[in-house]
């Protein structure tokens, strides 16, 4: 089983919001900067990797029951985004890794956990 906390550790990430989900299980992941694509294609219990950083990223996660968002390339969201995530119970993780590396690491972890 892979938890939100495992994701943070694996990516050497900093937890910015939503500590409440750290022991929750994640089943899959998706990397996208277009929320349109997330809304159209992602299954639930997924981790969302993104470089986009506006409140609609949190809203999209909220509607889709996504419990964990990873911001890649060392970017940090504004206070308003962090606050909204805490309010909605969405975990935010910031990693210095680029999208490709971050997704690759988690993909390998999912495969070895099978």
């Amino acid at each position: 089983m892979i938890t939100v906390n495992n994701v943070a550790e694996l990516l050497d990430g900093k937890i910015l919001a939503g500590e409440c989900n750290l022991s929750e299980e994640v089943h899959s992941a998706c990397g996208a900067d277009m929320m349109s694509d997330v809304l159209a294609f992602v299954k639930d219990k997924a981790v969302l990797f993104t470089g986009l950083m506006n409140p609609q990223v949190i809203r999209t996660a909220e509607m889709m029951d996504i419990i964990c968002i990873v911001f890649v390339r060392g970017k940090l969201p504004g206070e308003d985004v962090i606050e909204l995530a805490n309010e909605r119970g969405v975990t935010l993780i910031a990693t210095k890794l680029r999208m490709f590396e971050a997704c690759g690491k988690l993909y390998a972890e999912f495969n070895s956990a099978k």
Binding site: M34, M35, S36, D37, L39, A40, L52, N54, V57
Partner: peptide, 14 residues
């Protein structure tokens, strides 16, 4: 709008 993460033309079909 695309820079905000929308505008893939997927909303109505979805």
């Amino acid at each position: 709008v695309r820079a905000l993460g929308f505008g893939a033309g997927m909303g109505l079909p979805n």
